[in-house]
Amino acid sequence: MGIWIQISAGSDKPIYAQIMEQVSQTIAKGILKAGDKLPAVRKLAAELVVNPNTVANAYRLLEKEGLLTTKTGSGTFVGDPKLRSKDISQLNALAERMDTLIGQGVNLGFSGDVLMKMFKDRLGKFTKKS
């Protein structure tokens, strides 16, 4: 299964962060599964027209999070879900981003029930495959 990464240079989000976000989304949605191979750094860099160091950096940070593993000589693969780190700073970062979204929802006048249903529906898209 191939993955499609689309980056936009000149946006608020640094390019390495865009790559990280899209790769982890692809994994979260189950499009890429444990053991699947990722495109080689140089291949992806040429495709996206970005510096190979930027791609390597994104992969390295994802590896630190336990999402990817690198086998010397054979490439980068999706890691075993059991080995993924869930440290407290990541949870905090997630909570902060949720706050922003919840704040927007509340400001638009949606009730807690509506927002909760929306959350569950969206969550379903990610969890039914695993």
Partner: peptide
Amino acid sequence: ILADVERVAD
């Protein structure tokens, strides 16, 4: 063009 620089410069 800073977007170009961001793309290719390390």
